[in-house]
């Protein structure tokens, strides 16, 4: 069983990584990006109860002051019409955050987790064509040597 937890920054706080990406998009000569928010996705394998998932999400994976989380498939800050780019590691590529997450879960006394994977979701608002979004994903976000990406429109 896979438990998917998404963590994102409180809407009223600056997403510094997002701001950085907007600058890089300008460097690409792509216009129209209005806002970028990053979402960290963690997928935990193994038998995790709903209560345990809530604890993992609120005590380990997110910060109660600066972040929000959702458990399941739906993402947080997605606004209708926004582009969603998800960047995943290719198989076999070291995922250090996933390893640390498993350590944290074990420290919490939760025994069922057998594996974990992390990926990054980028929620991009603005008038941008699909080919430009692909360009952004390929040139700025995912390196095909180690990562793959998918693009969807919400």
């Amino acid at each position: 069983m896979t438990t998917r937890i998404e963590v994102y920054i409180r809407e009223d706080l600056v997403d510094a990584a997002g701001e950085g990406l907007i600058k890089d998009i300008e460097d690409l000569n792509v216009k129209g990006a209005k806002s970028v928010r990053f979402v960290r996705v963690t997928e935990i394998e193994g038998g995790i109860s709903k209560g345990e998932a809530r604890r993992i999400a609120s005590e380990l994976l997110s910060d109660p002051v600066s972040q929000r989380h959702v458990i399941g498939e739906v993402s947080g800050p997605v606004v209708d019409g926004a582009w969603v780019i998800e960047v995943k590691f290719n198989k076999g590529v070291t995922d250090t955050v996933a390893d640390t997450t498993l350590k944290g879960i074990a420290d919490m006394g939760i025994a069922g987790a057998t594996g974990a994977k992390t990926s990054t979701k980028v929620v991009l608002r603005g008038k941008i064509s699909k080919s430009d979004v692909e360009n952004i994903a390929r040139r700025l976000l995912a390196n095909s040597v180690i990562q793959s990406f998918s693009i969807a429109k919400s």
């Binding site: 005590e59 380990l60 994976l61 910060d63 250090t96 955050v97 390893d99 640390t100 997450t101 350590k103 944290g104 420290d107 919490m108 006394g109």
Partner: peptide, 19 residues
């Protein structure tokens, strides 16, 4: 601590609180 993976200090904080 623990690479600041997840967020800075979080994993050590969890370890201290639980262990």
């Amino acid at each position: 601590s623990y690479g600041d993976d997840i967020s800075a200090g979080r994993v050590l904080a969890v370890e201290m609180m639980n262990k």
